[in-house]
Amino acid sequence: GFPHNFQETTYLKPTFCDNCAGFLWGVIKQGYRCKDCGMNCHKQCKDLVVFECKK
């Protein structure tokens, strides 16, 4: 597997964290999205993600 390539992201529609399944709250920059596989997560979850990037 590969490490994720997370970038701070502004979501335009309701989005949930792929790590904890919690809602990504806020208006802008609600969470992080992996540029390579599209995984979404909270800032506090991005260092805890157990799934490797599937590129």
Rank of each mutant, 00 (worst) to 15 (best):
K29W: 06
F23G: 05
K43P: 08
C45P: 00
H42R: 00
C45W: 01
G1L: 12
G31W: 01
C41P: 01
N5Q: 11
C20W: 01
H4L: 00
Y32S: 12
R33C: 15
G1S: 15
L24Y: 02
T9P: 01
G1K: 15
P14W: 10
T15M: 08
L12F: 11
R33K: 15
D36Y: 05
G22C: 15
E8Y: 10
K13V: 10
D36R: 11
H4C: 07
V27F: 14
D18E: 10
K54V: 06
C41V: 14
L12A: 10
C53Q: 14
T10G: 07
Q7E: 11
C17D: 00
Y32G: 07
F16L: 03
P14M: 04
E8S: 07
Q30I: 01
K35L: 13
K46Q: 05
P3G: 15
T15W: 03
K46S: 10
F16E: 04
A21D: 09
I28F: 13
T10S: 10
V50T: 10
P14T: 01
K43M: 12
Q7H: 10
T9Y: 13
V49I: 05
E8G: 13
K43Y: 07
K35W: 07
I28V: 11
N5T: 12
Y11P: 01
C41Q: 03
K13A: 07
K35V: 09
E52I: 11
L24R: 04
P3C: 15
P3W: 15
A21F: 11
C53F: 05
Y32D: 07
Y32E: 08
C34N: 01
F23L: 15
C34F: 01
Q44G: 15
Y11S: 14
G38R: 13
C20M: 00
T9R: 11
K43V: 15
H4R: 00
L12S: 09
H4V: 00
V27D: 02
L48R: 09
K29A: 09
V49W: 14
D47P: 11
P3R: 13
W25A: 08
Y32W: 11
Q7L: 08
T15A: 15
C45T: 01
G22Q: 08
R33H: 14
C41R: 08
E52F: 15
Q30Y: 02
F6Q: 05
G22L: 11
C41L: 12
F16G: 05
Y32M: 10
K35D: 10
F16Y: 13
D36P: 07
V50L: 14
L48T: 12
K54C: 08
M39E: 07
